[in-house]
Design a protein around this nucleic acid. Structure first.
Lengths: 184, 184
DNA sequence: GTAATTATGTTGGATATCCAACACAAGAAT
DNA sequence: ATTCTTGTGTTGGATATCCAACATAATTAC
């Protein structure tokens, strides 16, 4: 209701910075990208960068969150329940997202990326759980969301490490019933 | 020497507007493009548009001039003399430019476009003539540039109308000696 | 090692851009 | 004819962005 419109310059500038960063990260590794590189390419002042982001890690964080959010199409899932189908879709989205990242050579930032993924997952799963149980907030559901997010993320790691001969769906299928029993 | 740097925001904003305009003019006819269309798409305020351009015709003027300038690679030609080779290249550039325009359906603006082309040509040719005759300025050379620009432009119109079975080079080749005799 | 260069953040004052509002014109809808 | 809508240009005050300068850390060069 009381949402104050954000200044269009802010939207435009953030988009410029983020797009430029994504663009650059396709050309060189994250560790070789400087703030100056980004601002020069994006045609904005360096001071303006710091007006929007704490530092380059903050930018990485926000860019990845946004990309992941698109992958998760969360506006769709938020309205759904947690069941075999939605869980499988989410798992697919996560593995998909990680595969797209591994092409971009963000070596040394696996921890950061992992945290971002789990954070986003957790928020999404918590919303779905709340909806499913018809409550406004609930601490135990929050913890459940934490555990589910770690579980899904961990499964995606293990899948990448061991089982890429199976599809993500196949890999996770047999485990899902046990998970679902816990939260129903 | 005393060139004052233009504010980066100006460069960025003008580029945004011009690129958006070029983009839109590939999707609909010029007469259907409004200032609001452009500013919305470019994510800038309408008032900002008027800070940079008098109106949409002024924008058309500047966009076409710039595109044409690139076609003419004038920074190259400015240093050359007017001879068979450079005249042919320029003629090719003009016909090329007009062909690319005709795909974009600017029906009803042929006069505007013609004026822009001749203006740019005239400036370029005048510079080349000055260089060739080793003077700083000269009224009769200016008039010569006017006539040459009209001549080249007219030839390009006639070529488009009648002789597209000949290449631009072939079309203009036999006439060039007569032109060159006049200015040498 | 140490000098020289390059990147990071921060600040105060200058400038481009935004917003809301206005008057006006042109076309479409009823 | 008359609303109604949509686009054009313009203005004054608010805000994001720029610039120049600075201190500091990190890298590179010698």
């Amino acid at each position: 209701m009381d949402q104050v419109k954000t200044d269009p310059r802010i939207i435009r500038t953030r988009k410029l910075i983020m797009d430029t960063f994504i663009d650059l990260s396709g050309k060189k590794e994250f560790k070789d990208i400087t703030v100056k590189d980004i601002t020069t390419e994006a045609m904005i002042n360096r001071a303006t960068f710091y007006y929007h982001f704490e530092d380059i890690y903050d930018l990485l964080d926000k860019v990845l969150s946004e990309v992941l959010l698109v992958n998760l199409k969360s506006e769709v899932y938020e309205k759904e329940e947690i069941n075999e189908q939605s869980l499988t879709s989410i798992f697919k989205a996560i593995t998909n997202f990680q595969m797209s990242l591994s092409n971009r050579c963000h070596r040394g930032y696996e921890d950061t990326i992992a945290r971002i993924i789990r954070d986003q997952l957790e928020v999404l799963l918590y919303k779905m759980l709340l909806k499913q149980h018809q409550v406004k907030e609930d601490e135990s559901l929050k913890v459940a969301a934490v555990m589910l997010s770690w579980g899904i993320y961990g499964a995606s790691v293990e899948w990448r490490r061991n089982s890429q001969d199976a599809t993500p769906e196949e890999y996770i299928k047999s485990a899902i019933p046990y998970i679902l029993k816990g939260i129903e």
